[in-house]
Design a protein around this nucleic acid. Structure first.
Lengths: 212, 212
DNA sequence: CGACAGGTTGAGCCTAGTCAATGAATGTGG
DNA sequence: CCACATTCATTGACTAGGCTCAACCTGTCG
């Protein structure tokens, strides 16, 4: 169940992260196909990753199949920083992706550079707890879209890399509720759903209001 | 709204954390009264804290009064590690507490020691997301009690430092649901509620089953 | 073009929330 | 020490938001 982390193309150009100021992640590029596991729960946490292209989901499962997505990682995001005790999440590719992979040990001297990524992750997790614990379905969806457009959105258009099921499992809802909520937001004129993987925000202010 | 962090008793014995191996937190002891704010949302994040006695809640609020408690900090827990951009939480004393307070700058050279605390916090936050997103009321309460007894419980008795409202806001429920769930678990013989601040776990196995 | 996975819509149900009343515990002043 | 006030917890009746189950639709790809 462990995705092979052996570098598949040792001759590939050694990828040095372009965003040096952010994280001098010296590693190698690696490609994963749709649905492929980057790492699984219980694996040794020897590597740290940075998304180059595509999106990754961090998944937790209950025995009966209930699923919670803790986070989506988009291009530029660093993930996989953990204590030694083994992965507590499964990370899977949503669509085909390219990551930069670096040994954790390589970065030990460089730990300060990972510091902010770890703390940023904590902050996002805590913010998401508020959503999961206290927000209504429409607030959750509005928050999700607003967050995505801030992270990736060109001129208010969000290209959703993930399925409805992924959205639902991230937001603590069902696919039906996500779908109904999108329809409802559309009929209110707040968004335009143009194909199920693309949403345009027509009234960002209306959505922002739902966020607070 | 910012709790005074000026040290109130400069002559107090300089507290060097007993748990050296864990975190060499060299700071001063400081006392807070019931409900007193340790720090508030927006404050500068200049200090790091460790709980000596009592319990602390980390609170997030929405404009309309909805409240989410991201975490409870119990004796031994370190909290308040954040990026520079200001507190995103309010931390409040539950009952009278004693903390050890250390300047963040004091610990910069010592950052590696805070590393594991930050990552442990991230892990706890991610685990809690699963609870908030995907578990039923009885599963949430069972999880909460099991967690507490692991962290503090002597022989299966949990002394709850927090009110029902705090529990509800941590679990993403209402006080009524928390209360009803406790009653229900009691009538199932899983727990014994002995006064509203003390619970004895009679069938930890039954609770553990609800946790997975 | 047909098949299939993924998405939407509808009907009914159920869990947890809301509103309200009662009960227990804690604190204060006479 | 007791009476009272106040806050917190429990219980009940009812409501509602989101879930379940099921049918239908859409888009994608061979």
């Amino acid at each position: 169940m462990h995705a092979q982390l052996r570098i598949t193309s040792p001759l590939a150009a050694r990828a040095i992260d372009a965003d040096r100021d952010d994280l001098q992640l010296i590693g190698v590029a690696k490609t994963f196909a749709v649905g492929q596991q980057v790492f699984g729960e219980g694996d040794k946490a020897d590597y740290v990753f940075k998304v180059v292209s595509g999106a990754v989901r961090a998944v937790q499962m209950l025995a009966d199949g209930r699923r919670q997505i803790a986070e989506f990682y988009l291009p530029g995001d660093v993930f996989g920083i953990e204590l030694g005790g083994g992965r507590r999440m499964t990370a899977e590719a949503i669509g085909d992706i390219v990551l930069v992979v670096a040994r954790r040990t390589t970065l030990t001297n460089d730990a300060a550079r990972l510091w902010r990524h770890a703390l940023a992750g904590l902050e996002r997790a805590q913010a998401h707890m508020l959503t999961l614990g206290r927000r209504s379905a429409s607030e959750r969806v509005a928050h999700f879209l607003t967050d995505l457009v801030e992270r990736t959105g060109a001129d208010g258009v969000v290209e959703l890399p993930m399925s409805r099921q992924d959205m639902a499992d991230y937001l603590g809802l069902t696919i039906e509720t996500v779908s109904r909520t999108l329809t409802q937001l559309q009929s209110q004129g707040a968004i335009e759903v143009r194909g199920c993987r693309s949403v345009r925000l027509l009234q960002p202010a209306a959505l922002a209001e739902l966020c607070e």
